[in-house]
Amino acid sequence: MHRSDTTGPRPAWFFREYEPVGVDLGSAAAVASYDRNQGTDPDADDALLDRLDVVAGTRLVDLACGTGSLVVQAARRGAEAHGVDVSEQMLAFARARAERAGAGAHWHRAGFLDYAHRAGPADVVTTRSALHQLPDFFKQQALLNAAGVLRPGGTFYLWDVIFSFPPADAAEHLGQWIDTAGRPVGEGFTRADFEAHVREEFSTYAWILEGMLARAGFEILAHESRSPTHGEFLCRRR
């Protein structure tokens, strides 16, 4: 394992990426609960890695890797797998997961905005359920940084809470999502968690992300909205 250092002092206006947004994940118990609530599934991770053609020797970087499940599964198949996260608690959980699996992954405490990739250019960069933690101006900066990590022709995959409904219908669709997604305490993310997500985090519209991706130097190969509130982009670095 090695750690990435930040690239130097940031101006006072810079987004404070290391301060928690949304659900508090500042303890080991909270991170373990988050992992359960996320429904971590190695089979689903492997299915995504298959889609992204991650094989032995592929260099993969997972930005905001959380509890590290995708990174561990990539390492298990022989990829050079790098997990990046601002949370020491998340990285500790991820390292323990890798040790249990006998997977040799690389872990870096860094964020979307300051990750400095020290290895060769990545073949694949992924991020799931995390870019919404940045306001749109800083999302654009994060996407520029992600493009800089990739080799030309490399693959970028984004999955997140991404809104595909018409703006005029926002209240209807967000209400339906919160009504159906919330679970009782102890059984998953609660209604209050989803209400806080909409109120305090920075999920945005697919058409906004399309422009950001293009301006970061990505060609969008596929975009799928799995629901009015969730979707994915599969891109290639130009």
Rank of each mutant, 00 (worst) to 15 (best):
F112A: 15
A56T: 10
M90D: 12
R109I: 04
R51V: 14
R100L: 11
R100D: 15
A75Y: 06
A110C: 12
M90K: 03
D50S: 14
V72A: 05
L52F: 01
L49D: 09
L70V: 00
G39M: 08
Q73M: 07
E99F: 10
G83A: 09
G83M: 02
G83Q: 07
G66W: 02
R77P: 08
E80Y: 03
Q89N: 07
D35C: 14
A81K: 03
L48K: 10
G66M: 07
R36S: 11
A79C: 05
A96H: 06
Y34H: 15
D50C: 10
L52Y: 00
L91E: 11
L49S: 12
R100W: 05
C65S: 06
V54A: 13
A96E: 07
G104M: 15
R76Q: 07
V84D: 03
A64K: 03
S87C: 13
R77W: 09
T58A: 12
E88D: 10
A105T: 06
A98S: 01
T67M: 12
P42F: 11
G78C: 12
A64G: 15
L91I: 04
W107Y: 04
H106T: 14
R36M: 14
A79R: 05
T58D: 13
D62W: 02
D85G: 06
V86G: 01
G111H: 02
Y34V: 14
G68H: 08
G68D: 05
L48A: 15
N37D: 15
F93A: 15
D85P: 02
A74W: 13
S69I: 13
L49V: 13
A94S: 04
E88T: 09
R109D: 11
G78Q: 01
V55F: 15
S69M: 06
R77C: 08
D43Q: 09
V72D: 00
V86M: 10
R51M: 04
D43V: 11
L63M: 15
L60T: 12
G104V: 03
D50W: 05
F112D: 09
Y34A: 15
R59I: 12
T40D: 13
D53L: 15
Q89L: 10
A105Y: 01
S69F: 01
R95V: 03
Q89V: 13
A96D: 15
L52A: 13
G111C: 11
E88R: 06
Q38L: 03
Y34G: 09
V71W: 01
D35I: 03
W107D: 06
V55P: 07
R51S: 15
R51D: 06
S69G: 15
A94H: 01
T67Y: 00
D50M: 00
Q89A: 06
G68K: 02
A75S: 07
R109C: 12
H82W: 04
R100C: 08
T58H: 14
E99Q: 14
A98V: 02
